[in-house]
């Protein structure tokens, strides 16, 4: 069960950071001076890290 959840996180992670979804993010707008796509990368990346941590630290097998 736990491994299936991790697999899901991995697939979503890969999907969000590649074509075609990336195509919609790939613009030159920036937020607070930070390029939007860069911010997007950091958020998705952090999201994957946090979900991995949570899944692995919950008690269920």
């Amino acid at each position: 069960m736990r491994n299936n959840k991790l697999l899901l996180v991995a697939i979503v992670f890969l999907g969000l950071l590649n074509f075609p979804i990336l195509h919609f993010i790939d613009s030159k707008n920036s937020v607070l001076g930070i390029p939007f796509i860069y911010l997007y990368f950091l958020v998705v990346w952090l999201g994957a890290i946090v979900s991995t941590g949570i899944i692995l630290n919950r008690n269920s097998k």
């Binding site: 590649n18 990336l22 195509h23 790939d26 030159k28 607070l32 001076g33 930070i34 796509i37 860069y38």
Partner: peptide, 26 residues
């Protein structure tokens, strides 16, 4: 801050599409 730093130079920076494209990226 970032804004000040990034204004130092205008380059077509972040786009994946224009920097090798999605195929190379993947």
């Amino acid at each position: 801050g970032w804004e000040g730093t990034l204004q130092l130079h205008t380059i077509s920076l972040p786009s994946i599409e224009t920097n090798g494209g999605y195929g190379n990226w993947f």
